[in-house]
Write a protein that binds this DNA or RNA. Structure first.
Lengths: 192, 192
DNA sequence: CAGGATGTCTAGCGTTGCTAGGATGTCGTC
DNA sequence: GACGACATCCTAGCAACGCTAGACATCCTG
């Protein structure tokens, strides 16, 4: 339990995070198909096997990036929700923030919500930040409505669909604002 | 221009389709990650290079599968839409049919709407069956409403989100029916 | 200072998508 | 019917992939 050991562990933890951020940067710059273990190793200036001493495999690295993303998304949505919760404006703000997040960090978003994953959603083992992000949607609906979780699921599904279809060029990305307005108009508790 | 030549071309066309259906079956049975050029070649009882005399690469095979799927989806949605178009029931029927299609042919659905593609959506070069499928949604809204295309985009996005999030285990698949009901209630022209 | 644990690298395995080049067979012409 | 031209198909191989075994170096401990 020497001082050296502590330093080692600290360095190891730093390198762990370095791998995660390097994977994320590489993915954001060139897409996930460009993130190979060789390029990643080169980028962190270690050899390939070092990656495997930190993560069980490439999937685990992607998962680590995704989990980092959940925290950022939760924070981003929370910042966007106005303090005075006029319900419809709150929903609009949160939805817009969600689409912003997806558009500005497409690779991160893919790691979180598109790539195959074994992260548990809506489950006891769900990462707390992920649950927190989802709750930002739930909180946009009336607390006394028993179906607000259902509402949140559908709104989230719609936003996710808009995000991925737009990102993959399947719907024109310049109509996103209009679609957002329409979605919120239809889903907010206070119609009109 | 001999008879033999005609037979050759006929055989070639058959083999072309054989490759497509083999790829699709393999994907439906074991997922797209199991569809390798070697396994596909083995399945059609030819060597690998034969695939490349029909398609420019693996992506082109996936695209061909997807395009087949567009036709089937359009037909499936059209069958589902009732002749007497009570608007809300029509929308409900088409939406349910869409989700059915996605759940029952998940690999085909992925080829069409998830995997990277260069198929043109909402464009002059859009495959007609794809446009026809989209129009089944558009037709669920009042013809005099200039924004019905927008409505259709958002409904489609929501359904797509529900389909992929459920398929990848990110929302529980047994809530799909409830979500569908809620979606249609909020989006149909005739509220209530 | 020796011995064992820890950390890191080189080298290589099996698989992937894809392609070059040779063998085989079929066709139109003399 | 024999022959050159052509089309068809396969064997063999390339580079890149995720991942791992085993050798080397380095450091802490007794």
């Amino acid at each position: 339990m020497s001082v050296t050991r502590e330093r080692r562990e600290r360095e190891r933890a730093q390198r762990h995070q370095l791998i995660i951020t390097a994977a994320r940067e590489l993915a954001e710059a060139e897409g996930w198909e460009a993130v190979t273990t060789r390029r990643l190793a080169e980028r962190v200036e270690y050899s390939q096997p070092v990656l495997y001493s930190h993560f069980s495999g490439k999937d685990a690295i992607v998962r680590a990036v995704a989990i980092d993303g959940f925290g950022e998304l939760a924070a981003h949505l929370h910042r966007a929700r106005p303090a005075d919760p006029e319900p419809r404006q709150a929903l609009h703000a949160v939805c817009r923030a969600y689409l912003e997040f997806a558009t500005e960090r497409p690779a991160l978003y893919q790691a979180m919500f598109v790539l195959p994953t074994d992260v548990k959603f809506a489950h006891a083992e769900t990462p707390p930040p992920l649950r927190a992000a989802f709750d930002e949607f739930v909180s946009c609906f009336r607390p006394d409505d028993a179906r607000r979780e259902l509402f949140a699921e559908v709104v989230w599904s719609a936003l996710h669909g808009m995000a991925v279809l737009s990102d993959s060029g399947r719907i024109p990305s310049d109509g996103q604002e209009e679609r957002l307005d329409f979605l919120v108009a239809r889903f907010s508790d206070t119609p009109g």
